[in-house]
């Protein structure tokens, strides 16, 4: 098996668009009142921070768990597996 290359985000235009969108949404926070049910949700930029951090946590946790639950691609093809 070839050594997997790390996935790169390569699109320069995509990046510009995403950054512009992010900047706009941060700015919009000043003008728009978000109606909140919960105290935490009412914090400024809660969704922006949560979205960003949750993504990192998700990748980190699945990277850690992967060591436990991944096996070779043909694991079930042999009668008793490789574990």
């Amino acid at each position: 098996m070839a050594k997997p290359r790390p996935t790169k985000f390569t699109s320069a235009n995509g990046l510009r668009l995403l950054l512009a969108l992010a900047a706009f949404l941060l700015l919009a926070e000043v003008f728009v009142h978000r109606h909140a049910y919960f105290a935490l949700e009412a914090l400024p930029l809660f969704f922006a921070a949560f979205g960003f951090l949750a993504f990192l946590v998700l990748i980190a946790v699945s990277w850690l768990v992967a060591k436990w639950v991944t096996r070779s691609a043909d694991y079930y093809d042999t009668p008793e597996g490789d574990a």
Partner: peptide, 23 residues
């Protein structure tokens, strides 16, 4: 408006998480 903004922030900043990690 506030709900739409929160949702958009969530989606865009989660995607930024991907950009930063891939960089």
């Amino acid at each position: 408006a506030g709900y739409v903004l929160g949702e958009l922030q969530l989606l865009v900043f989660a995607s930024l998480g991907f950009v930063v990690l891939s960089w």
